[in-house]
Design a binder for these strands. Structure first.
Lengths: 127, 127
DNA sequence: CAGGTAAGTGAGAATCTTTCTCACTTCGCG
DNA sequence: CGCGAAGTGAGAAAGATTCTCACTTACCTG
C-alpha cells in the first residue's frame, strides 16, 4: 500500500463517521451531508467528499454504485455482498458471503484487501 | 423480468454495439461516443445513453463503475470478475471466476441472471 | 505550553456525467 | 406505400463530484 496516509481526527470527520455508523446502510454523499447538518452545524459538501475519500483509503468505508446515479458509501465491514434488481434498482445485502477468496495466479503482485460481490437479476415483484 | 422490451435495429445502435464489441474492455459513454464519431458521422451523446440502456435491458451489455466518476459499459458476456487498485484506479479482469454461484435462501424470490465480483487492494506499483 | 506547519475546512465555482425535452426522422408492420 | 411507435439530435437541465483559495485547526517539537 502507498503511505499509510495518516489522517487527522477532526470534529467534522467524527460527525461524518458517526452518521455512517448510525445509518446501517449505504448512503450517498448528499444524504450524509444532510444528516450531519441535522445534528449540529452544517458542514461543507466538499468536506464530506474529502472525508469519504480519506475513510475509503483508510479502509473504514467502502463505496458502491447501486443502480442510481450517485455513489453510495457505507462501513467497509458490513455486507460486501448483495443482490440488485435490474428493473427497479432495489438491492439488498446477503447475509453470508457465497465464497469469494483472493484470486490466485490471475493477478500476480496484487495485494487484495477486500472484495465486493453483486448478484443481479429481477426481484419478486419485477419478474 | 418485465416485458422483453422489443428494440429497433437502427444504424446508430449497430455502430455503438460494434464499438463496444471491438473495444475488448469496458468503456465510458463518452469514450463510446467519441469512437463512434471517429468512424463516420457523429451521433448524439443522448443516443449513446439510450442505446446503452436498451442494450443493458436486453442483457447484451453490462455496466460497472470502477473507481472513476463515470460508469463503464462492456459486453455482458465478458469478464464479470476483476481486481481494482484502490490507489491508482487501474483494474484488470480475472480469467477464471473464483466461485460465485447463486445465493440460496438469502434472497428468496429473486431471480439471478448474473453477477459481478470485484477484488480490491493495491497493485504491484502502488503497494 | 507556545509555535510552526501541514492537513483540513467552507463556500462557491467549475467540471463532468447523465437525463430530459421537443421537434424531426426512421424502422417495420400491414 | 402509409401509419404509428420508437429512435434521434441538439442543447438545456439536473445532479454529482472535484477544484480553488483563503482561512482554520490538529498535532508534533522544542
Amino acid at each position: 500500500m502507498a503511505d499509510p496516509k495518516r489522517t487527522r481526527n477532526t470534529q467534522q470527520r467524527q460527525r461524518i463517521l458517526r452518521v455512517i455508523q448510525a445509518a446501517g446502510c449505504h448512503l450517498t454523499a448528499r444524504e450524509i451531508h444532510r444528516r450531519v447538518g441535522q445534528n449540529g452545524r452544517a458542514i461543507g459538501l466538499a468536506t464530506v467528499y474529502r472525508a469519504l475519500e480519506a475513510f475509503a483509503r483508510a479502509g473504514l468505508v467502502e463505496s458502491a454504485s447501486l443502480g442510481g446515479r450517485a455513489i453510495r458509501y457505507g462501513l467497509a465491514a458490513e455486507h460486501h455482498d448483495h443482490v440488485v434488481c435490474l428493473e427497479c434498482g432495489k438491492w439488498q445485502p446477503l447475509g453470508r458471503c457465497p465464497a469469494p477468496r483472493a484470486p490466485r495466479g490471475a493477478a500476480p503482485g496484487f495485494r487484495v484487501t477486500g472484495h465486493r460481490l453483486e448478484f443481479f437479476g429481477y426481484c419478486e415483484e419485477c419478474r
